[in-house]
């Protein structure tokens, strides 16, 4: 079966600094892939390229059968690592917004999810706390049914109890058959969920492969291996 995402020899420079060099990997359908690396390793840069937010790069990126662009955007549900919602709207209007633009958005389920996440649908987005905004963004993304979810640091800066809730929300709601590309630098809590992992170090792939194979081969947890590979 065709990979849902193919990345080949992607290079990206900011002036003289190489943010990404020779990055190549595939994401197969129905796999949960951990994109692992410390802050500044190039994860967000790579994600922006895949989502079509950065046009200035070398290499080939294919989502399904399309390059980053209009058709690809329909197949990707993207959770950015920063607040991006129209903050003058009320929460319930933001749900409408998503329903207006995304055919695969399940507004009823999103409304339910917000209730269980205790996000007030009548409040304006700008009146929500940071944690609430993150939950809202998560609910919006997870109630879509794309081929690929891209989640950029969904559990960074979140306390351990909330982390559990977020991971549970992701796993309970993701559309079966879809793949998830989850970037994070917090590994031990979530490594059991990854089918495949990619270590991104200073813009290059240091290691990639099925998580279980790596555990068997190295006799270590992914977290332990990560600490070794990225030791300062």
């Amino acid at each position: 079966m065709n990979p849902i995402l193919q990345v080949r020899q992607v290079n990206k420079r900011y002036g003289k600094v190489a943010a990404l060099s020779g990055v190549s990997f595939d994401v197969a359908p129905g796999r949960i892939v951990g994109l692992l690396g410390p802050n500044g390793s190039g994860k967000t840069t790579l994600i922006k390229i895949i989502c079509g937010l950065t046009s200035d790069y070398e290499g080939v990126v294919v989502i399904g059968d399309n390059p980053p662009g209009l058709a690809a955007k329909r197949e990707i549900a993207y959770l950015p690592d920063r607040e991006s919602l129209p903050d003058w709207l009320k929460v319930k209007d933001v749900l409408r917004y998503f329903a207006d633009f995304y055919d695969d958005f399940d507004i009823a389920r999103a409304a339910e999810m917000l209730v269980s996440l205790k996000v007030d649908a009548e409040k304006r987005v700008k009146a929500l706390s940071k944690g609430m905004k993150e939950k809202l963004q998560l609910a919006l993304v997870m109630c879509r049914r794309p081929k690929l979810y891209i989640l950029d640091e969904p559990i960074a800066g979140v306390d351990p109890a909330a982390r559990d809730l977020i991971m549970r929300t992701i796993l309970q709601n993701f559309h079966e058959g879809a793949s998830i590309l989850l970037s994070t630098h917090i590994i031990s809590d979530v490594e059991a969920l990854f089918d495949d992992v990619i270590f991104l170090k200073d813009g290059e792939i240091a290691l990639a492969g099925p998580a279980e194979d790596i555990r068997a081969r190295e006799g270590k947890s992914i977290d332990q291996l990560f600490r070794e590979v990225f030791a300062c």
Partner: peptide, 13 residues
């Protein structure tokens, strides 16, 4: 600005 992360990933031309 930050909202670009939403508007520019919408499936619109």
């Amino acid at each position: 600005a930050q909202q670009g992360y939403l508007t520019r990933t919408l499936p619109v031309t």
